[in-house]
Design a protein around this nucleic acid. Structure first.
Lengths: 192, 192
DNA sequence: TTACAATTCGGACATCCGACCTAATAAAAT
DNA sequence: ATTTTATTAGGTCGGATGTCCGAATTGTAA
């Protein structure tokens, strides 16, 4: 009975995980509800039962992804103490992300693209970028003796740090033949 | 007769422009060949006549976009003489792009996303990023007294500059309510 | 056990899409 | 003028997709 409850919960979660898996490996545009149902080992109509429609399901996938990023990045930053080490840790996070879990980054990039065309996703993704830059500001910029920035707000600076990692990461993913992963290290020169 | 030839060329070009317009305003995933045909004022089968299939048409749209970026950015950089002014010009280019022609940037972002899932587009987009970073390297890094980079290759640096502008630009587009356009100015601090 | 609610299942629907085909028309070449 | 090619037009086909519905099954509470 407890088992059964677990299974039921797992069923709606299995759908979520299957959706995430499908989208992160093929892109939101190339995934059908039937694909997700098959991946989850579930009948098609179950997707409409738990999540009203396709958009509803995708929104939950986005929310799950957002949680992952917020938790992981804050976790990785709060582990270190000095701002310098935190920058290094952030760089390492992105490197490892691209190396061991590139699907998660593809998911972020893909949904950010979807956010360009669909207001609901635009709000979600904009909030993610906002919160991520807030975390960077809190853990790195608020504690550091800032020398280089002349008149730039910490808000702008944190946005720029985030943007440079994001924009560099997509280039690294795209150019998989040649190794560009060291390019991410250049974030460090912002603090010299 | 010359008129007619013009019209014929215009017809295949009208399709291309219509496709570009549709994709840059709705995203590649939300555009059908019928949409493009209507936008171009052409019968559906004409799209298959001039461009074999949907992928063939989209590839031509990508190639057109790539030309625009390469020409415009090199144009904007060669206009200035000092590396410092060229950085400023590059920043201004991205600012104006987001302000007056955001569709073109959305097109770049969208196709870069498509490149994550489709090899043909991956090659095209990877080459674009590669050539753009080469241009940056040629016009800005090769001429400057580089002080800040300790052991980083010009190649990495140019990639990073490009990435930081790209990653910042998408954030600006996403957060249209609050003004983040000044964030792009932070590229300058890389050269201080 | 019985009655009720939640869940699972299989199937059907209307719609849209990309690709293809054939005939008609215009242009060019002979 | 006649043949030949290039272009335009309209329509069709098979297939895939999202949504919805009703029945069957299971779990829960009385």
């Amino acid at each position: 009975m407890i088992k059964d409850k677990m299974n039921k919960l797992n069923q709606s979660e299995r759908i979520l995980i299957a959706a995430s898996k499908c989208i992160s490996s093929r892109g939101y545009a190339n995934v059908s509800l039937r694909d997700i149902a098959n991946e989850a080992g579930v009948v098609l109509s179950q997707l409409n039962y738990y999540y009203k429609n396709k958009e509803g399901l995708f929104i939950e996938v986005v929310k799950m992804m957002i949680k992952k990023y917020l938790i992981q990045i804050e976790e990785c930053l709060k582990r270190e103490v000095s701002p310098k080490k935190r920058v290094v840790a952030l760089i390492k996070y992105f490197k490892d992300l691209l190396k061991y879990n590139p699907e998660l980054f593809k998911l972020l990039y893909d949904f950010t693209g979807l956010a360009l065309w669909t207001p609901k996703f635009k709000n979600l993704l904009n909030n993610l970028f906002k919160e991520l830059s807030n975390i960077i500001e809190k853990y790195i910029l608020n504690t550091i003796q800032i020398k280089n920035i002349k008149g730039y707000s910490p808000k702008s600076l944190s946005r720029f740090i985030l943007g440079s990692m994001f924009g560099t990461a997509i280039q690294i993913l795209l150019a998989d033949e040649e190794d560009l992963s060291e390019t991410l290290d250049l974030v460090e020169i912002l603090f010299e």
